[in-house]
Design a protein around this nucleic acid. Structure first.
Lengths: 250, 250
DNA sequence: TATTGTGAATTAGTTCACAGCT
DNA sequence: AGCTGTGAACTAATTCACAATA
């Protein structure tokens, strides 16, 4: 039974939460946080289409999880559903938005303007999802000074000043693996505490810095493992007939 | 204590493993599979630099995990270490390589030649990591027929034939969200059972198809959540001094 | 002696199943 | 009647800590 796998992120640190005044955020499990982003996308889509209310069942289907998990996840935010009815799409959207801290419209710096960097620079989803590219940085003198999407490409040597003046919250790293650690160190010194790393390297960072990694090769290898297992399995079984059922939750 | 988080994937199905003749692969936990790819990268790097033997401690540091986890992970592959000494780099590399099914040099199809698709087409890591781009597909008549990296861009309408003749094992989807499900359906009909989805949509697939998703916006939103929590925390605490310790494992 | 391999203990995450509302 | 919210049960993953051993 090899179904669509949900890709959640196991926990790292974050054990020591405290209820903090203002936005109430006591210990939302890491796995739940990762799914909130998915729920948010589904909700925004529904809102655009004019759906006003949604049940845990249909939102769960849209998000590719089962409804018990969805309800448990939402329960960490508080009690925003109406029994017998469902969830108000716009209210729930706002709550998740707030919980993820997206009201802040965080400034993002894009470091490294290779093919991937350019692709990300052109990604329309930044603005619509609560982020704003505020700086683009590279080391190549040939492109420093040119403009990409209205922003001047700045030199990596000026990183410190850029981070401070633009108040960069998140850095997206698309530099070659060989220089990733060095650039990361500069970012950390400049005060960046959240990094999304596309370089195929493990970054060493101080404990207060958060790194997430996107790793194409690793994803393919994980698929390869399961593919391999599937074909090994197929060798011992009668040929599969065409009876395939759509399954999102188990 | 907000440290570098490891990004492992929680399990979906795959509960019903069976020991299969040949490559021995009984029930490796999902979280472990995801890390094997990281260990492999670290090992390959060490091999290139001429390291012959490595202890669980140093490999763990290189991979950004703690050594107990690393040893437990490797123990699922079998017993390839030497007590008091460590692991033979080349032997362990081969074992992980085999476990991940990378000896097969799987054929990958790239579907969608936007900015991201082009960036991925140019990614050198495919070949060196056990994959080979065998087909590039798009729907835009203006680019169908042109060549990218030596490969002709083919039309999405021919997907069925392409998948069969090239024996495509894995499809990498970088098409617009609006058409992702439709293209996915065609892939499934053509017989693809592993999909790496970069489109910001949840794909519905039959149970035997494996989908992994890479989601830029979600990653940023998760970082945003923690960033938000950090700043809320900082409001109630004395300013942090400069004493930052590098922490990879706890 | 140094390091692996692993049962046992712990912690996190998921699912069940039903009480409690609307 | 229908759907949420959630304790309780279960399953997966991590960490501990130490016996085994080259």
């Amino acid at each position: 039974m090899i179904a669509q796998r949900d890709q959640l992120n196991a926990v790292g640190g974050h054990a020591d939460e405290r209820s903090v005044a203002g936005t109430d955020q006591r210990s939302i499990p890491e796995a739940t946080v990762a799914r909130l982003a998915i729920y948010l996308r589904a909700l925004v889509g529904m809102g655009k289409v004019g759906v006003a209310t949604v049940s845990s069942g249909s939102l769960a289907t849209a998000a590719g999880v089962n409804s018990a998990k969805l309800r448990k996840d939402l329960s960490y935010l508080g009690s925003y559903g109406i029994r017998g009815v469902g969830y108000d799409v716009s209210l729930l959207t706002d709550q998740i938005h707030k919980t993820l801290g997206l009201h802040q419209n965080r400034a993002v710096a894009l470091i490294g303007l290779g093919h991937l960097g350019r692709a990300l620079a052109g990604y329309a989803g930044f603005a619509s999802r609560g982020f704003r590219i505020s700086a683009i940085v590279d080391a190549d003198p040939a492109i420093v000074g040119t403009r990409v999407r209205g922003l001047p490409v700045q030199h990596v040597d000026d990183l410190d000043a850029i981070v401070r003046t633009e108040n960069i919250a998140i850095a997206v790293l698309t530099v070659p693996a060989g220089v990733a650690q060095e650039v990361c160190d500069r970012l950390v010194v400049a005060g960046v505490t959240s990094i999304l790393n596309f370089a195929p390297t493990v970054l060493a960072v101080p404990a207060h810095v958060d790194v997430r990694k996107v790793d194409l090769a690793a994803e393919l290898q994980i698929l390869s493992f399961h593919d391999n297992r599937k074909s090994a399995r197929a060798d011992c079984e009668p040929a599969r007939s065409g009876s395939s059922t759509m399954a999102v939750g188990p």
